[in-house]
Write a protein that binds this DNA or RNA. Sequence first.
DNA 1: GATCTGACATTAA
DNA 2: ATTAATGCCAGAT
Length: 109
Amino acid sequence: MNFNDTVYAIVRQIPAGKVASYGQVAALAGSRRASRAVGYALHRNPYQYKVPCHRVVFKDGSLTAGFGLGGKALQRQLLEAEGVEFTDDGRVDMGRYRWQTAEIGIFIT
DNA sequence: GATCTGACATTAA
DNA sequence: ATTAATGCCAGAT
């Protein structure tokens, strides 16, 4: 499994109404510091219909600075539509909406 | 084929 | 607590 495909497989498992950080995805993909590769993988691969990129946010819960078209506004809109709560800082309430990988016991082969 | 860049995170100072 | 440097992977030049 390529790192890229692994990333997609993981992000695709993120349930609606939850958000995962790049580092988390990277860690699940094999390297916890490969968060950069994760973000770039999503950037160049418009698998939007398969990969809910909007559910992938910063570790702090802040939104991506260069999210396709619409940027943070669109991302926030999508997340709010899923029931994700936003703070006054425009960040996601990670304490409640952070994706618990243990929930599905993800195990990418 | 080598080098640089890019949706980040972590560690050290 | 904040700032700087390093690491990671894949694509583009």
